[in-house]
Simulated assay, not measured.
Amino acid sequence: MPRQGDPPPPRPAIRPLPRAARWLLLAFAGLCLVLAVIGVILPGMPATVFLLMAAWAAARSSPRLHAWLLEHRLFGPMLRDWENGHCVSRRAKWSATATMAVGAVVLVWAAYRPWIAAVGIGCMAVVLAWLWRRPEPAV
């Protein structure tokens, strides 16, 4: 039983993934990155979720891509905040809220059936509730 003040036990060594798994994760990271960029442009499509998935997959498959994402001018701050305590900035929260509001208006206007719009808006509401519960990074 560790006593107070004792150093934490060493982490077990992580075995490297097989080459095929790394390539699959790298392809998944690339796909998620493309979807994140589309999500920045297209209202109603979540960019943040795809960006986080891209960073997760890159961290396990390509240290170079992961480092590039962390240092990226637009994506880096958000990813670093997430890696340091699962924080989301207030600006990102408001941006997601505004984008989803536009997406909800488009859904109400263009949905073939009202229940389709209701399901989409319900999903966006759940995501926003979760997002606004995330802590904000210390300034």
Results as ranks from 00 to 15, higher is better:
A58M: 12
S62K: 03
W23H: 10
S61N: 04
C32F: 14
A36V: 07
M53Y: 07
R64L: 13
I38C: 08
L52D: 06
G44Y: 09
A21W: 10
L26I: 02
R19E: 15
C32L: 00
V40D: 09
V34S: 04
L65R: 11
L42D: 00
I14C: 01
P18L: 08
P63W: 09
L42E: 05
C32P: 09
P46F: 02
G44N: 05
L33F: 15
A21L: 14
G44F: 08
A47K: 04
G30S: 10
R19N: 06
L51M: 15
P16H: 03
G30K: 01
M53D: 01
A29Y: 08
I41D: 01
W56M: 06
S62I: 06
L42R: 08
L26M: 10
R11P: 13
G44P: 09
I38N: 00
M53R: 06
R19G: 07
P10C: 04
G30C: 14
L31W: 13
S61D: 04
R22G: 05
R60A: 02
A58D: 10
P16W: 04
W56I: 00
R60G: 10
P8L: 13
G30Q: 11
P9E: 13
A20N: 09
R19H: 12
L52P: 02
I41S: 01
A54L: 07
L24T: 11
A13T: 08
L35A: 13
A27M: 14
R22Y: 02
A13K: 12
R19T: 12
I14W: 09
P10D: 02
P16S: 04
T48E: 13
R19L: 14
A47E: 09
L51F: 07
G30H: 04
A13D: 08
M45T: 11
A20I: 15
L51G: 13
R60T: 00
I38G: 00
I41L: 14
A27Y: 07
P63C: 03
L35M: 11
P18N: 15
P9M: 09
A13W: 14
C32K: 13
I41A: 11
P10E: 02
P46C: 03
R19F: 13
L31H: 14
G30F: 07
P9R: 15
A59N: 15
L52N: 04
A59G: 15
L31I: 11
L65E: 02
L35P: 01
V34W: 12
R60Q: 06
A36H: 08
P8C: 05
L52R: 11
G30V: 05
S62N: 12
W56N: 00
L51K: 05
S61P: 07
A54F: 06
G44L: 10
L33D: 08
W56D: 03
R22L: 01
S61M: 01
I14L: 13
A55M: 15
I41H: 02
P43D: 09
V40M: 14
L17S: 01
A54E: 07
A59E: 14
A58P: 13
L31R: 12
A55Q: 12
I41W: 10
P46V: 00
A27T: 11
L25Q: 04
F50E: 02
M53E: 09
